[in-house]
């Protein structure tokens, strides 16, 4: 495919997606909104986890800060939704800068654990804050406008994907990849690793926070446990890794496919959905450790051997 054709195709798909509210039923629209938000979250995680190689469990904190930022601005200060979104994003950036600098010095598992612990701390802090409604949370003004929420979520996903596209083709993104591949070597070659990591963390956080803000207004009710839900972070990771980390469309495809499967399963045989989810993760990690994007790239060449070669490569 030529680049022009690719752009044309991308625009066509986006337009088709944008026309969904006029075509689909209310249930499908709701499912689509949550899928788009999940895809945005996965795309955000892709920046820090996929490109930079830092396995963040703190992205659900960004989501929570975005939710609460928006809710506090709207409920406590009676500000418009747009201002609330910006406030939430600002909170996320502050978090990324203040805690990112010390925490991003940790590598590997240690970074993952530190962000995981931070998310527990944030949940506990928020559930003790008067302005955030303590344990009971906040109720946002009701707005019946699923088509609007849908278009907002779609726009955010497009923005996130364009950002990742830029990262994949820029000097900045090249620096992030170098950090992922070998941080000491990256520093010794002139890359300001601290700055790059913190920026990646912050950009990743902005998208998560915006998704959180939209989600809060859409769902109209937030509480600490659901807003800072760690399993949401795990979903981001699974969707990204399933689709293909450090690829431009992988996280989006991963989110669409996994949300679709889990939606179909939970409506058909509701209780087995989570079992299936767990099984998919296990099977995917063993047989396609580099995600769908890699399968699509290599399957044509190697055929079914692709799966057994993955196992051979990584087994003891």
């Amino acid at each position: 495919m030529t680049p022009k054709l690719k752009v044309a195709l991308a625009v066509a798909v986006t337009c088709a997606l944008a026309s969904l509210p006029w075509l689909a039923s209310a249930t499908i629209l709701q499912f689509s909104i949550s899928t788009l938000l999940l895809a945005t979250l996965a795309q955000g995680w892709n920046i820090i986890g996929g490109y930079t190689g830092y396995a963040s469990f703190g992205n659900s904190v960004f989501f929570g800060l975005g939710s609460y930022g928006t809710a506090i601005a709207m409920v406590q200060w009676h500000l418009p939704f747009g201002v609330g979104l910006v406030f939430g994003a600002v909170l996320a950036v502050v978090f990324a800068l203040v805690l990112g600098i010390p925490v991003l010095r940790l590598r590997g598992h240690y970074f993952a654990i530190a962000t995981l612990a931070l998310s527990q701390v944030m949940t506990a802090i928020v559930s003790n804050l008067e302005i955030a409604g303590r344990n009971t949370g906040l109720v946002l003004p009701l707005l019946n406008g699923d088509p609007l929420f849908y278009e907002l979520s779609l726009a955010l996903l497009v923005l996130a994907t364009l950002t990742v596209f830029w990262i994949a083709h820029s000097r900045f993104g090249f620096g992030l990849i170098a950090i992922r591949e070998n941080e000491d070597a990256a520093a010794s070659m002139g890359i300001n690793t601290t700055l790059y990591k913190v920026l990646a963390f912050a950009i990743s956080g902005i998208f998560s926070a915006l998704a959180g803000g939209i989600h809060a207004y859409w769902i109209t009710f937030i509480d600490p446990v659901s807003a800072f839900d760690l399993s949401l972070n795990v979903k981001m990771i699974i969707m990204t890794v399933f689709g293909g980390p450090a690829s431009i469309l992988g996280p989006v495809v991963g989110a669409f496919v996994l949300s679709g499967i889990s939606e179909i399963l939970s409506s058909a045989i509701s209780s087995v959905a989570s079992l299936f989810f767990g099984a998919v993760i296990i099977v995917a990690v063993v047989f396609m450790p580099r995600g769908l994007a890699d399968v699509l790239r290599r399957f044509r060449k190697t055929g079914w051997r692709y799966f057994s070669e993955n196992v051979k490569k990584y087994r003891l």
Partner: peptide, 10 residues
């Protein structure tokens, strides 16, 4: 580096 540090995946 004595213990070479290439970017392995690139």
């Amino acid at each position: 580096f004595q213990i070479m540090k290439p970017f392995p995946g690139l």
